[in-house]
Amino acid sequence: MKVYVIMGVAGCGKSTVGREAAKRLNIPFLEGDHFHPKSNIKKMSRGTPLNDEDRMPWVEAMIQTCQGTASKSDGKDAPMILACSALSKTVRQRLREGLNERCQFIHLQGAQAMIERRLSERSGHFFKADLLASQFAALDMPQRAITLDVFQPVDILAQQVCDIIQSEDQAE
């Protein structure tokens, strides 16, 4: 199993791009937001940023689910996509360790002002736009990630993710 982690700050399109790429490739897609404990959701709903201590139960839940999804799949080496902010080096390192180094980070990167505009137009999500600055502050720029420009159309971004996954699968 190889997990392609679509990472970046809130509002950058992780879920949209990841879901579309997984659909095109017919592989599992996991939404990282679904693994937050209630305490994290309450904290973010109040406008309080998470720290790495808050994030660890969330990270462990994602690792367990990725491993469980892989064990249920027909081909154990089948890839999957996980949408997860993975802002800190600590979180990325724990994901790498928990997934036995079988993960590739794909960072959706863009300007804060444009992402903030996008977030302000989103409704029904626990993450509030005023927390975006804290996410940019918490972002340790990944050294071992493929970076994509978030302000390309979703179709293009999803195809780029598909191309990355298909080229890596053929190389292995």
Rank of each mutant, 00 (worst) to 15 (best):
Y4W: 10
R46G: 13
C103L: 03
V59I: 15
S167E: 11
A137R: 15
C84L: 14
E53V: 12
T69G: 02
V150E: 02
S123H: 14
H125K: 07
E60D: 11
L50P: 01
Q135L: 13
P49E: 09
M44F: 05
L82W: 04
Q143C: 10
M44P: 00
P142D: 09
H36I: 03
K23N: 11
D130M: 14
R102I: 02
K42M: 09
D52Y: 02
K72F: 02
I156G: 01
C162P: 11
Y4K: 12
N40W: 01
D54N: 07
C162N: 07
A113Y: 03
A10E: 03
Q112L: 15
D33W: 02
H34I: 00
A83V: 07
T147Y: 00
S88F: 00
L148N: 01
S120G: 04
K42R: 07
G124F: 08
F29L: 09
E172V: 13
M1A: 11
I27T: 10
G68S: 12
Q135H: 06
A83M: 12
A86M: 11
I6P: 07
C103W: 00
G110R: 04
F136T: 10
V91D: 06
I156H: 07
V154D: 04
A21S: 11
D149G: 03
S123Q: 13
M44K: 11
G13T: 04
L132P: 09
I6C: 12
P28N: 09
D33E: 08
E31D: 15
R46K: 15
Q159F: 09
I165S: 04
Q159H: 14
K43G: 14
Q160S: 13
G8M: 10
I27N: 14
H34G: 02
S134M: 06
C66E: 04
Q109I: 03
Q166L: 15
T90N: 14
D163S: 15
R117Y: 05
Q143E: 12
N51G: 09
L148T: 00
P57Y: 01
P37S: 07
P57F: 00
V9M: 11
K76N: 08
R118M: 14
G98C: 06
E116P: 01
D130H: 12
A145Y: 01
A133K: 13
I165Q: 09
E20K: 09
P57L: 02
K42G: 03
P79A: 05
Q152E: 14
D54G: 08
P153C: 00
Q166E: 13
N26L: 10
A86F: 02
R92L: 12
K89E: 12
A133Y: 01
I164P: 06
H34V: 00
V59L: 15
